[in-house]
Nucleic acid binder design. Structure first.
Length: 224
DNA sequence: GCGACAG
DNA sequence: ATCTTGTCGC
């Protein structure tokens, strides 16, 4: 199992995140994405399986995938998820044959206590546009949003708009979209909707999730 | 001091 | 997220 982290070190990791937040660039995409990737991690004991998948746009067909497996050393600590999952995610993404134009990460981007969620971490590390698409809120609040697909409501934390609650399917619980790197919030919302068809989450994200899950299932449960 | 807390 | 089967509902 992952070890605990000394409280004095926690603050060092937080400081690194504050620095990472300054490296994040929020600006319009330079190129219309034609290759969109998604990455997700499945946990199994102290092992993690990260799956990266690449899809074409607008046809939304899978063209590649890569899986990376490894032991998780860092524990799950709210706000410090990157240190636990990003290394494996980077390994999976770098295994793709072609560099994607946009990456969807499972978790927050700037909608983070220090504006440095895992999507920011991956984006800055790779120098590629990234979006955080989370299934629940880490920080911030938002007003109720319409029931129709496409309805949105700003996610506000510390009097700052850090993301957007987005209804990707009519009548379904919203997802929380935020900028990771090299994209604007409006574009992040737009591309999240463009890649979401029948379900709550974007197709590439769903595929990455299932691939990581089935791969992890073939691995033996570890010994404490 | 008391909750909240991505995956 | 994980540990886990069936079950209620569109």
């Amino acid at each position: 199992m992952a070890d605990s982290v000394p409280t004095e070190l926690i603050e060092e990791y937080r400081q690194r995140q504050r620095e990472l937040a300054h490296a994040v660039i929020e600006r319009s995409l330079t190129k219309a994405p034609t290759v969109i990737a998604a990455v997700d991690v499945h946990l199994r004991g102290s092992w993690g399986v990260a799956a990266a998948v690449a899809y074409t746009y607008p046809s939304l067909e899978e063209i590649d995938h890569h899986v990376a497996t490894g032991r998780l050393t860092f524990p799950y600590i709210p706000g410090l998820l990157s240190y636990r999952e990003a290394p494996l995610c980077l390994k999976a993404i770098r295994g793709l044959a072609q560099e994607p134009d946009l990456i969807l990460a499972d978790g927050q981007g700037r909608a983070h206590p220090r504006r440095a969620g895992i999507a920011c971490h991956l984006g800055v590390e790779l120098g590629l546009p990234t979006i955080g698409v989370a299934k629940s809120i880490l920080v911030g609040r938002h007003d109720p949003l319409g029931e129709e697909r496409g309805s949105v409501a700003p996610l506000v934390a510390d009097d700052e708009v850090v993301g957007m609650a987005v209804r990707t399917r009519t009548g379904v619980t919203p997802v929380y979209v935020s900028v990771g790197h090299l994209i604007t919030l409006d574009e992040a919302v737009d591309w999240t909707l463009r890649t979401t068809t029948r379900y709550r989450l974007p197709e590439p994200s769903r595929r990455a999730h299932r691939l990581a899950q089935v791969t992890a299932r073939t691995l033996p449960t570890d010994a404490p």
